[in-house]
Design a protein around this nucleic acid. Structure first.
Lengths: 354, 354
DNA sequence: AAGCTCCATGCAAGCGCTTACATTTGTCAC
DNA sequence: GTGACAAATGTAAGCGCTTGCATGGAGCTT
């Protein structure tokens, strides 16, 4: 046996070999005790585990990863951690991974495909075995990299029938269309939309197209939609709402790309003395906790965050283990009815017919 | 030279050795090109980097970690990801780490010391070089483990003068005392407090003691404080507020352990038809974005999230590099004045004197 | 031209673990 | 007691990288 240290195990952490020596077995046996206990006899296992405890042994991550070619670490790249949009989903993802002995690594891309590509490379370099990605839009290089590196990955928070990639999520376009249809049914015909940057964000694009779909279905020209494109934040939602209200014919209903934007719109409405939903209706998207506590409470699209997180984890684990993840999953998104949506204010009886 | 593959590099990712062969240099040179370029001549470096690009070489994380005894990964364990309390701070932490080529690993403990201990072990096993921890309260085993494993770590979001550990944060007790003092100065003398579970949470304990300090300083008996202890969540804040309002002599000011609890309190006030701040004042703690958009906007304690995150990262990096982190840092916390705090409603002239 | 220094590079020894394969030990039928 | 087979354990070859030390050559000085 090679002599690694002639003195007592001075400073460094104990290694497998230290444990093996103290327990009077080989390193292989110790390793098996830790990784596949069934292969080891009860007596030996007890003895080894006792030594492990006494020495405070903890396996060296690098060595294990190198030898096993597996880190048991999955990465998740979300567009933002600034607000709670992805928090619930991520928490469910992590919880499910934990059940499988896998740790989660998070990074955020600030809604930028270029930054996301960088994060993908970083996480893979950090040894991520698999990746959770949000939405379909990303650089071709990102997809090429994932392919050549053979990194199992899944797209969540989106379901786009035309995309072949493995995914779990809901149809953003249909969900927004459903909400917009309800808005129109209440009698609104001047709609405003505050959306996130649509380039590089397929969800935002899909939601905006959903509104157009609903308008068309109602015989309205989507070109009549008053649009503000900005970045997700409360302040920008507020600013967007102000912009919309300052036009010649302000919309009677303002649809927002997400709840954060809508919360901003609501606070600006209060500031401007615009009554919601009396004067103008406002809707959100995502149904984060915030939606329930703003005044008035927000009518929004309820998104199955937890289900997506949990499902994504399960599918990714299967994929990593070489099993069948079972194909793309489409989940439903429903409308959460609250106070911020109501019929438009009464109008003069004489109306200009189109 | 050992022949690893006789065929073309079929499936697996290219290794250092592949690069070395193609470039006609040794693996040592390739390694140096990547890690300390100055040691390599311009010409060689160019040639090697070109091959790296062509082959799409990416270093193997495990191997690097094993050989270098360093993963360039730091861990952060926060009590919760469910709400945005730690989001800003964490983002700043991550950004600063990025500047040093370090990746962040996050885990959440759900405010449970036992779970936190588990997370500490997990992150260390996952190769975290250093750890960011929130608050001082944790199991003795956690501290023992950190010590025997020699893991650099720092405590943030708290500054407790009596604790010897390296930390960066603010004095929760003094901050809450300052706020409570303002509340009392406005004329309130029946105070309520909705706090998080104080056991295992030194910040919650400190905040609650801060209220007591303020009362004592004013000649009030802290025993008169009406207290609800619950778990951080909007729903629990709402429930806590209701409980307080249903007592025989409801408080005229309800201090909340954080903004999430306060947001819940506010929504319950609306539901109960209690006017804030006309009938009852409400305050929060943390000054998360939420505080500015609830109705009425929340008077709260503004906490230097970003500074803590950035500072913690810098100190931790120094510590990991064997430099002097420069000792515990105390940051200030200020009061963010908004609409939810006002003098108590006028009372009958005849008052029962204590 | 010999002797020196210094820079660029190569050599090779690990880092601590997993795992295929080999070996030992134990169990049971006969 | 013996042989066959299974279970438990040991042996040792890597996994891909970093880095201390050795080497060789270019550029100086004298």
């Amino acid at each position: 046996m090679r002599v690694r240290r002639n003195q007592a195990n001075d400073a460094a952490s104990p290694t497998l070999e230290d444990v093996a020596q103290h327990a009077g077995v080989s390193t292989a046996t110790v390793s098996r005790c830790l990784n596949s206990p069934v292969q080891v006899s009860e007596a030996t296992r007890m003895r080894v585990l006792e030594v492990v405890r006494q020495l405070g042994y903890a396996p060296n991550f690098g060595a294990r990863a190198l030898a096993a070619k597996r880190t048991d670490t999955f990465g998740a790249i979300i567009p933002t951690m600034e607000n709670a949009i992805f928090a619930r989903g991520l928490e469910a993802f992590q919880k499910e991974l934990g059940l499988h002995g896998i740790t989660m690594l998070v990074a955020s891309s600030s809604y930028s495909p270029a930054l996301e590509e960088e994060q993908i490379r970083t996480l893979v370099a950090r040894g991520a075995d698999a990746l959770l990605l949000i939405g379909h839009d990303r650089t071709p290089e990102s997809y090429a990299f994932l392919k050549t590196q053979r990194i199992p990955h899944i797209v969540a928070w989106a379901h786009a029938p035309e995309q072949a990639r493995l995914s779990i999520g809901f149809d953003n376009r249909r969900a927004m269309q459903a909400l917009a249809t309800e808005v129109l049914s209440l009698g609104h015909d001047r709609l405003g939309l505050i959306t996130a940057q649509r380039e590089g964000n397929d969800r935002a694009r899909a939601r905006s197209e959903g509104v157009a779909d609903a308008m068309r279905a109602r015989g309205l020209d989507p070109a009549g939609l008053q649009l503000v494109e900005t970045t997700y934040s409360i302040a920008n939602g507020a600013q967007g709402f102000r912009t919309l209200m300052e036009t010649a014919f302000p919309p009677t209903a303002v649809l927002c790309g997400n709840d954060v934007l809508a919360a901003g719109a609501l606070s600006m409405a209060r500031e401007l003395g615009v009554d919601v939903p009396g004067d103008v209706s406002v809707t959100g998207f995502d149904d984060i906790e915030l939606a329930g506590i703003v005044t008035p409470a927000l009518t929004t699209v309820h998104v199955p965050h937890r289900k997506m997180g949990r499902g994504a984890a399960q599918m990714l684990v299967a994929l990593r283990n070489g099993q069948d993840p079972g194909g793309t999953v489409e989940l439903g998104a429903t409308i959460a009815w609250r106070a911020s949506l109501a019929p438009p204010p009464a109008r003069p009886a004489v109306r200009i017919e189109r």
